[in-house]
Each structure stands twice: as C-alpha cells, then as structure tokens.
Simulated scan of single mutants.
Amino acid sequence: MSEEKLYAVKNDEGRYWDFLNEDGFHDFDSVDTHTTYEKQQAEAVADDCGEHVVTLIEEPKKVVLTKEQAEIVEKAHDSGYPATEIFSGTDSGAGEERLLIKAYVNGYTVAKEKRYMVELDGLVTTDGAKQYLTKKDGKWFACRRMPGMHQDFTDEELNKAPEWAQQLDRKEVTDDDE
C-alpha cells in the first residue's frame, strides 16, 4: 500500500470542500478537486469552517487463495474465534497463517485452478487435425479440439485418468487456448 495519503474536508451534510475553487462545500459530483496531499491545508480549511478532515487511503489488495484456503477463511468468518479457526486449519506454518489472516481482514479471491490439455503426439484425424485426450460419459478417447468437449483437465482429473493417460505430456491451458 502506498504511504501517500489524500485528504478531503467534509461537512456534516456530506458535502465536500472544493480545493481548486476554494469557494465552499458542494455535492460530491460538483466539486472540481476533492482532495489535497497537504494535510496542513486540509486541517486549516476544516478549522476555519468548523468541519472535519477525511483521510482517504487505498483499499488493500485482496489476497489470492486456493479453494481450500478460502474455505478456512470462510469458517473463520462464521466462527466466534476466527484466529483459532485459522490456526487450526493450517499446517504450513506461520506464513500461511499470516496470508489467511490478511485474507480475513482485506478480502480474497480464489485462484483459478490450472487446467491442462493433453495432445496425443502422432495421432491425427484423416484430414490432419491433431488429436487430444477427451472424456465423455466416463470414457477416455481421442478427439480434435472441439467446443463443448471435455478436453481441459485439472491435475486432480488427470490423476484419476487411466495410467497410460497420466504418462502423457500436458500443456497448461491459457485464456488464448479457450
């Protein structure tokens, strides 16, 4: 988070001082310059007008968590003892605990799980299209890349695939591949 702060002066009616025009308090939408970097300037305006300084800070960035870590943080939010929930839910040590506490306080997003496609080297259709590992209705087979076919797999899915399929090289799917 940046150490720089911005200051605004707000009155009890929810109107803001215009630092550009210095002509009084206005609705937020009609103020040209809402803030100043100068704390003393904001305090002087507030003192002169009998109003108060509002310090604006950057919203902290959300932490990126795994699905499992997010579940721990959710349990902590539902618990009367969040720190205990976080401590008992982790086994990776203080680093993970700090990460989860930061997520508890600042919010979080869940990382997209990596997905992989498996090209079947040397296997092509009669018109020369590459073949990829595909799964449908519990069956594993070869198929060209086709929308709607299950051809992008998580590690967990590939670990449940037949042994021969687990031995094949996998390539991480990017947004360009989808």
Rank of each mutant, 00 (worst) to 15 (best):
E38Y: 08
L20G: 11
G24M: 13
D91N: 07
V9E: 03
C49R: 12
K62Q: 10
T66Q: 05
C143S: 15
H26M: 00
E157S: 07
E97Y: 06
Y108K: 14
D127C: 00
V31K: 03
V54R: 03
M1E: 13
E96R: 04
T36G: 00
T109C: 00
E172T: 12
T134L: 02
D177Q: 02
A129C: 03
T154F: 06
F153G: 05
A70S: 08
V173H: 07
H150A: 11
R98G: 07
L168N: 02
E163Y: 01
A94M: 13
K130R: 15
D48C: 03
K10P: 01
A111Q: 05
H34E: 03
E51V: 07
A129T: 09
Q69C: 04
A8K: 10
L100E: 13
R145C: 02
D175V: 14
A46G: 04
H77V: 14
I72Y: 07
E43G: 00
F28A: 08
Q167F: 11
D23K: 05
G93F: 04
Y116T: 04
E13Y: 02
R170Q: 08
N106S: 09
A70E: 00
R115E: 15
A103C: 08
H26D: 02
D152A: 14
T84G: 06
K135H: 04
A76Y: 11
E85T: 15
H52N: 10
T36Q: 09
R115L: 15
D12M: 09
D48G: 04
T66R: 06
E172K: 10
A161N: 09
D47N: 11
A46E: 05
D152F: 14
D121M: 05
K114W: 03
E96F: 01
M1I: 08
T66H: 02
D91Q: 04
H150P: 02
M117Q: 13
K10V: 14
A142I: 02
L133I: 04
Y81W: 09
G14P: 09
Q41R: 15
E59P: 00
T35G: 00
D32K: 11
N106L: 04
F25E: 01
A142F: 01
K67C: 01
D91Y: 09
P147G: 12
T84D: 00
W140E: 11
R170V: 12
E38M: 05
L100K: 06
L20K: 15
G122N: 12
S79M: 02
D29R: 12
A46V: 06
L100G: 11
S88T: 09
F153S: 07
N106I: 05
K112T: 11
N11H: 00
M146E: 12
E51I: 02
A42Y: 06
V53G: 06
F28V: 12
E172D: 03
E38H: 14
E85C: 11
D176V: 10
T126N: 13
S79T: 09
T33V: 05
L168W: 10
K135M: 13
D29W: 12
G122P: 01
Q166D: 06
H77P: 01
D48A: 15
L56D: 04
Q166P: 09
M149S: 10
K130L: 13
D175F: 14
E85H: 05
A46N: 03
A161C: 07
T90H: 03
A165M: 13
G89L: 03
G95F: 08
I72E: 01
G14L: 00
D78T: 08
P162H: 01
E96W: 02
